[in-house]
Design a binder for these strands. Structure first.
Lengths: 140, 140
DNA sequence: TTGTATTTGCAACTTAGTTGCAGTAAAATT
DNA sequence: AATTTTACTGCAACTAAGTTGCAAATACAA
């Protein structure tokens, strides 16, 4: 799903053009990694845009609500946002803070089914993030 | 590991008696579920103790550092703490907010090994929490 | 009983995020 | 083109979780 596509879909829903909101999508598309609002604002600044943080939070609220982006919590006290693509997890290097995407496909399905059966829950979602040392930092 | 045991271990390390810190351990032992500082302070109050939040945060800092408790993040913006026992995960009912412990034993080991091989990471820890409907709320 | 390090309370601060309100601007309607 | 509607934005003030500095209180070893 490219940017124009998303902008058009938003327009159909009654949203108006917003250079800030469009740029947030562009940035997230290009970086393809979860970014915090701080990081987003820095990227916007480097594009010559200087929206207030309130605006950024509100744009994110809309994009989350319309399911164009996802919220990611990497346990460091700030939410991050990434383009909503195939379900995946992350590996965070505790040394250099680098973030990688990790595809686990259906490795968790069996586990969820097992838990549902054993406990009687209906599992709707999960969070799974890995922490450790990346290739580079492993060597040092 | 019971409370006296923990208090004694702390004393050996140069810590002094603290009714607040001891009570935090007692509460966490008894409840056997992750509690937020708010919840901890309420429980302490009902024991006739009224420590300042700073004190509670500092007691938790010590107990975390000495590995008597663990920090748990259930993605609602506040940390929780629980007695450090066998590694496990949680199931959070999104309706009634009830928290259950989920033992996954070594279900994740294969997955971690696979990721380590494929990506070249050294995985040191992970967070895995499940969200959905508990037995009761499933019925409604 | 004294000395010292730990524990505690208080106030002020930080950081991430939210809310209310007024002003601006997109775009549909006339 | 002018008007109207409503989305978008900025600003300031606020909230909530957690932290820091400092001084006072307390545990406890000597």
């Amino acid at each position: 799903m490219d940017i124009n596509n998303i902008t058009q879909k938003l327009k159909k829903k009654g949203y108006r053009n917003s250079i800030n909101r469009d740029s947030i999508i562009e940035i997230l598309e290009e970086r393809n990694l979860p970014l915090s609002t701080d990081e987003l604002i820095k990227e916007l600044n480097s594009l010559g845009l200087h929206p207030n943080k309130t605006t950024v939070y509100r744009d994110i609220y809309v994009l989350l609500g319309e399911n164009f982006i996802n919220e990611v919590d990497l346990l460091d006290g700030k939410k991050r946002y990434e383009i909503n693509r195939r379900h995946h997890h992350h590996f965070i290097c505790t040394k250099c803070k680098d973030i990688s995407c990790v595809e686990t496909e259906n490795d968790l399905d069996n586990l969820e089914t097992k838990i549902e059966k054993e406990q009687g829950f209906k599992i709707k979602s999960h969070v799974l993030e890995f922490f450790g040392l990346c290739r580079k930092c492993k060597k040092d």
